[in-house]
Design a protein around this nucleic acid. Sequence first.
RNA 1: GCGGAGGUAGCGAAGUGGACAAACGCGGCAGCCUCAAGAGCUGUUCCCUUAGUGGGUUCACAGGUUCGAAUCCUGUCCUCCGCACCA
Length: 883
Amino acid sequence: MHPQNQIAKKWQKLWEEAKVFEVKEGHKKKFFVLDMFPYPSGKLHLGHARTYSISDCFTRFKRMQGFNVLHPIGYDALGLPAENAAIQNKTHPKTWTEQTITLMKQGQEELGFSYDWSRELRTCDSDYQRWEQWLFLKFYEKNLAYRKKALVNYCNKCNTVLANEQVIDGRCWRCHSEIEQKELEQWFFKITEYAEGLLKDLEKLEKWPERVRLMQKNWIGKSEGVEINFKVKSFEEIITVFTTRPDTIFGVTYMAIAPEHELVMNLVKGTPYEKKIKKFWGQVKKESEIERTSAELEKRGCFTGAFVINPLNNEEVPIFVVDYVLINYGTGSVMGVPAHDQRDFEFAKKYDIPIRIVITPEDKLLDYKKMKEAYVEDGILINSGQFNGLKSIEAIEKISDFIDKNNFGKRAVNYKLRDWLISRQRYWGTPIPIIYCDKCGIVPVPEKDLPVLLPQKVEFTGKGNPLNIESFTKVKCPNCGSIARRETDTMDTFVDSSWYFLRYCSPKYDNGPFEKNAVRYWMPVDTYIGGIEHAILHLLYSRFFTKVLKDMKMLDFDEPFMQLFTHGMVLKEGEVMSKSKGNVVEPEEMYEKYGIDTLRTFMLFGANPEKDLEWSDEGINGIGKFLNRIIELTEFSQTNTAKIKDHYLVSKMHSTIKKVTNNLENFEFNSALVSLFEYTEYLKKNQNLVSKETYKKAIEPLLLMIAPYAPHIAEERWEKFGNKPFISIASWPKYDEHNINPNFEAIEGMIERISYDINSVINLTKIKPTKITLFVAEKWKYNFFSHFKRELEKTRNVSDLIKNTIKYGNEKEIPRLINMILKDPSKMPMAILDEKLEFDIFNQEKQSIANKFKAEVEVLKASDSNEAKAKQALPGKPAILIR
RNA sequence: GCGGAGGUAGCGAAGUGGACAAACGCGGCAGCCUCAAGAGCUGUUCCCUUAGUGGGUUCACAGGUUCGAAUCCUGUCCUCCGCACCA
C-alpha cells in the first residue's frame, strides 16, 4: 500500500469517529456546497474523482474559513440504465443499483471527500419517493400537473416517451436513437406557466456562467409580437398567425399552414385539392423529424384552393400547406411575407407567389425582380396604406395598436418552452400516485396511502411496461370503492433531482418533504458544482420546482442555486474517456500507485477547473515530489538562530496567503498551487537563514493551505508538528497587507545575481575570499530603474516619461523619480546610479552574502575613485573586489 | 445562419497595458550522488553570442492605437461548444 494511503485510512477513520464533517443548523454563518449527485453506474471514474476533488477543495477551504458548511452527497438512483442492466443480467434494478452505489461510495470514501455522510440520500428510497409523490399531488392540486393527449416524443429503443429537453437533434439524449412522434395521453408539469419568471430571474443569477444563462434564455425562447386573425374566405373559420414583424403585414402574399393543422382537412374536404393535400401530407409524414427540420432542405408546399383575407387591406391571399411551418410553435400557421423573410422568399420563388416590398432601406430602392434574398432588416414602410413613411420600430407599435383596437387580433408573447412531459413507461422510477376510476375519473392517491411502492416481483423482459400487471394496477377507488386502475407510468428521473437539495437539509424528516427551519437555514445553495451538460434540463427543472414551492408558500426564496460552477471534463488524447474507446484511466489504479493525496492534488493542478483536463500519467509524479517536499520541510529540525531572512520570509508568507486565498475564492486551484510550490521552494532554500520561531510560523500556513488539496498529509503533519487535530477544521491563515513588501523579491533577486557573480569571480581567480567589497554601482539596481533609464535613452523625451511615469509607474517610486528628473533631466541615469536606497539595501544584505561566502563583506558607494580602484584590482568585475 | 468560449515556447498551463523571452509543472539536456539504474538534488531549456545585468525574433495571421502591446481596437484564418426552417 502506498504510504500516503495508510495515512489516509487513519485520518478517514478519525474523521468519521469524531463526526468532523457532520453539521447542524446553528447560529454560525452557513455555506452550502452542493455537488450534482451522481447517477450510480459503476465504479467511480476519473471524471467523478476530479469533480469531487474540486468541490471538496472548495468545501474544505470554506469550512476552514469558519463557515458552517453543508456538503452532502447522495445518489440519483432511479433510471433506465438500472432497468436495462436488470433485463440483461436477469437481476432486479434495485439489486443492481445497490451494488453500483456501494462501488461508487467506496471510491468516494477512499478519496477522503469531506461529505456529511449522515445526510446521504437515495432517490430510490421509499421515503424519498413518498415525498416526491406528495409533491406531485400538490402540483396536481394547483393544476400544475395535468394529463393530456398530445403528440409526444417517443424513443422506441428506451420504450418510453421523453420530454422536449431530452430530445437532442431529433434523437434520444440517452441512447441516441431517432425519436418518433406519437399521439399519447401523458402527464405534464405546467412549466410554461413559469416561463416568464424563469426567464426574468436569470438576471438575478449573477454568479452563474454567462453561457448557461444564455442557453436557458434561448431555450425559453421568448418573443413578443401580435396574433392576427385572418378570416378564411367562404368559410366560418379563422386562421390565427403569430408574428414579431407586424410592420410587414402589407407584404403578405400567402398564408402558410402546417400540414398537421386541424383546419387543413376542413378546408379541402370534398374539393379537388383534397387528394393532393393528402398525398403531400403522406410524403411529409414519412420523413423523420430530423429530415424534415433540416435547414438545408428545400421548402415544399401545396396549395389548398382556399384563401384568407388580410384584415388590414382586405386582400385575398392563397393558403398553402407547408412543411416548414411547425405545428407546435406559435399557432401552427404563418403569414407569408416573401420580400422580408428568407424562408418565405425561397418558398415564393419556387411557387411563383408575388413578392411585394413594403419595407425599404433608407438609402436605396429595392427591386423585387433583382432581389437575391429577402430584405429582413428594419427600414421605412411603403405600399402600406396609412402607415407609409413610418420606420419599422414605430410601425410595429402603431400597427399592433391598430390590430388591438379593431379586434383583428391582439398583442401576444410566445415561448419556445413546452410543458414538461414527466410520464415514463418504465419500471425503475417513482410511480405517479394516481388512480383511474370509471365513475370518478382521475383520482389522486390519498396522502395516507403514500408511498405507492414499486412491486418487487416483476419480470423484466424489455417489452412493455413491467408495471402493467394486475397485482399492481388493480385497486379500489379511494373515492367510491369500486374497482379502479392504478397509473402505471413512473415519473421522469429529472423530477427526482429537482428537489433533492431541499431534502438534504433534513433528510430524515417525516412530516413533509423537508423541514421548514432547516431549509430556511441552509438554502439557497451557495455554490453548486456540476457539469455543463445539465445547463438546461436539470437546472431549469430545479428552478421551476423552487418557484412553484415558493408560490405554495413552502419556501421563501425563488432561486435554488446562488452560484453555479461548471467544471470541465477529463480527456485523454482529446477524447472523453469511455470503455468503448478503451482509454479509461481508473482512479483506483492511480491512487494505489501515486497516493490518494497526490491524485487529488494533481487533478486540481492540471488545468483550470472550469476547463477540460487533458490527462497524462506523466505529470502526476511532480505533484508527488511536491508533497514529499512539504513532508520533508515539516520534518526539518533546524537549530539556526540567525534571522537573516526573517523579514523576507514573513513578507513571502503573507503575500502567499493573500494569493492563495484569492485564488481559492475564485476556483483558481491550479494558480493557488503554483503559489504554494513557490512558497515551499522558498522555505526549503532558506531553511538555514531564518530563525526557528519564524520558520515554524511559516510552515503552519503552508500546511493549512495545502489541507484542502491533500487533507490526509496535512492532518498527519499537523499532528506531528505538535498541533491538535483536526487541521480540517482549523482556521484558515490570515494575511496582513502591512507585512507584504512588494520589493522584496526584486531585492532578493539582486542579491542572488551578486552571489552568482561573486561565484564566477571565485571560480575564475581561484581566490578563497576573506573579504568581499561591493561597490554599489549602476549595475546593481532595481529593474524598475533600469527600465526607465532605457526608456529615457531611447526617447530622450523627458516630459513624456514623467507623464507616463505618473500614469503607469510604481506609485511608491514616482515622487522620487520625478524629483530626480526635474532637478536635472540629463543626469537621470546618474541619479539612479547614486540612489541612496540601493546603498542601504546592500548594507542590510551584507550579512546574508557574508554568510553565504563565509567572508567579511563591505559595501562602498560607487564614487569615481572607488570604482577606479575596483577596476584596477579586478578588470573584469568592476563592482566586486575580492581579497 | 445566430450566440458563446478559445488559439501563449516540445507538451499542459498562468499571464489581460508597463520589472515579459513570458510563472509553474511535464518532457529534454548537463552535472552531483551511485558499481549501475531509478529516486533525489543542482543547473539549463526561442535563436545568436558572452566573462555578461549583450543582441535578435516571438504569444494564430495582418494592420491600427500608445512613449510602451501576449494584453486594447479592426479585419482575416482556425478550433471547440450551444441553438437552429421559432414566424
